[in-house]
């Protein structure tokens, strides 16, 4: 658990982060959203002491982060940034093994961990181990960047716009991968992004920052349904909030018994995708499949009901 208490950071007398309190539960994903200059990156960088606060304190699992030297603290916390920050003169294995190397793991353990992570990110170890960063595509570089952050099995992962430089298709895939990895290892993730869509997709809770303050911190559904002020409203985009609400849930939660015609929809698809498919194919219902077997159907009527905001 990360507990941020009454933290302040000023540059030239201007508070960039202004008396912020934030608690991130263990094994959850907290997305910090805001426009540029809102102080979200500064807040993130105070968690691994890349920035030292002027006031307030941060505790990780009850221990003040100032209790250990900054570089020791940072080796326990994964850190992934936009533009991946890979070392251009090191190959993939050396990059991924950087933190284990700092922690004096032996060479065999490091090599095993590198192969394990490459496999996890669907990159063939024998092929990618010795590649240099400039020989990788943007999406591959970004995956290696996240793999490097996870190398020493940290409990906490800090991510600063990790997918910001990727094109939409690769970004969606990277978000999905990150979601799976988080589910599998239970890593606590603090993710900074300016993209509300990304925050909704990945965050268990979303903290919206504006001018150094957290204006709202809540579950995605609450943020969409009850934006605290016009700024949050604007970030969500009033125009498609019904669709954002639908995008939070999977088809699997709303399957009803019955039959339907046409192409089936997968049980893991979001309600938003299902609704779009029904509109597009002019159907009132579609069959739902799990592992290739039809388990029921999803109806347009149910979807319409689920998209209704609080009245």
């Amino acid at each position: 658990m990360i507990a941020i208490g009454n933290i302040v950071k000023s540059y030239d007398g201007v508070a960039v982060v202004d008396r912020v309190d934030l608690t991130v539960a263990a094994h959850s994903v907290c997305a910090i959203v805001g426009t540029s200059g809102s102080g979200k990156t500064t807040l993130l960088r105070m968690i691994n002491r890349l920035v030292e606060p002027d006031q307030g304190s941060i505790h990780i699992d009850g221990e003040d982060i100032r209790a250990v030297p900054a570089h020791v603290l940072r080796r326990r916390i994964g850190y992934a940034i936009q533009g991946h920050g890979l070392f251009p003169h090191w190959n993939v294995a050396q990059n991924i093994g950087a933190v284990p190397h700092l922690l004096n793991w032996n060479a065999r353990e490091i090599a095993a961990r590198v192969d394990e992570l490459l496999t996890l990110f669907q990159l063939d170890p024998s092929q990618f181990r010795t590649r240099m960063p400039h020989e990788l595509s943007g999406g591959q570089q970004q995956r290696i960047g996240v793999a490097r952050a996870l190398a020493a099995k940290p409990n906490i992962l800090l991510m600063d716009e990790p997918f910001g430089a990727l094109d939409p298709v690769i970004r969606a895939k990277a978000q999905e991968d990150l979601h799976k990895i988080q589910q599998r290892f239970g890593t606590t993730i603090v993710l900074v992004t300016h993209d509300m869509e990304e925050a909704i997709r990945l965050g268990d809770r979303i903290a919206v920052m504006d001018k150094g303050k957290i204006v709202q911190c809540a579950a995605p559904a609450d943020i969409i349904a009850h934006p605290a002020n016009s700024f949050v409203q604007e970030l969500i985009g009033a125009g498609d909030r019904a669709f954002r609400l639908l995008s939070l849930f999977a088809v699997g939660d709303h399957v009803e018994p019955g039959e339907a015609n046409g192409a089936p929809i997968d049980v893991t698809a979001s309600l938003r995708d299902a609704y779009s498919e029904l509109l597009w194919s002019a159907r009132n219902a579609a069959p739902v499949q799990r592992d290739g077997r039809i388990i029921g159907r999803i109806t347009r009527e149910a979807l319409t009901r689920l998209a209704v905001g609080p009245q």
């Binding site: 570089h71 850190y79 920050g85 890979l86 070392f87």
Partner: peptide
Amino acid sequence: PAVDAARGMGMT
């Protein structure tokens, strides 16, 4: 970014 990553991963 390389320098920031080096700092962030805990290099002295």
